[in-house]
C-alpha cells in the first residue's frame, strides 16, 4: 500500500469513507486541489463543492459543504460539516 494514499472523509454524524486510494480531489477555499500519495503537509478550509475520490477505475463523488482538509504524512483527512454521496461509479477515469 506504499503507493496509495490514505483518505478519510468524516462528518459529525459518521465516517463516510476511509481507505487507500490513488487520488483525492477537493474544493479548497482558494481553489480546487488534487492530492496524490506523499503530498507535502498542507491544510486548507473547504469551499462548497465536490470531493472526488479516485481509486483505479472507480470514482466516488461526495457533495460537501463547510469544513477543512488536512494533508499530512499519514494521508488526507477531510472534515466536512455536511456531506452526501453523489453515487458510485459516476464515470470511468481514463
Amino acid at each position: 500500500m506504499a503507493d496509495k494514499l490514505h483518505v478519510s472523509l468524516v462528518t459529525p454524524e459518521k465516517e463516510l469513507y476511509s481507505g487507500y486510494v490513488d487520488q483525492v480531489i477537493a474544493p479548497g477555499s482558494e481553489g480546487e486541489f488534487g492530492v496524490l500519495v506523499n503530498h507535502a503537509p498542507f491544510m486548507t478550509t473547504l469551499a462548497e463543492g465536490t470531493v472526488t475520490i479516485i481509486d483505479g477505475a472507480k470514482t466516488i463523488q461526495y457533495q460537501v459543504r463547510g469544513g477543512f482538509a488536512d494533508v499530512n504524512a499519514e494521508g488526507i483527512t477531510i472534515l466536512a460539516e455536511h456531506a452526501s454521496e453523489y453515487g458510485e461509479d459516476v464515470g470511468t477515469v481514463h
Binding site: E30, P41, M43, T44, F68
Partner: peptide, 20 residues
C-alpha cells in the same frame, strides 16, 4: 503527524484557526 515537515496553510494559519 507532519513528520517534522513544514505545513502549508491556505489561507493563513490565523485565518484557519479563526474559522476552526
Amino acid at each position: 503527524a507532519s513528520g517534522g515537515a513544514v505545513y502549508t496553510y491556505e489561507p493563513s494559519e490565523e485565518d484557519i484557526l479563526e474559522t476552526l
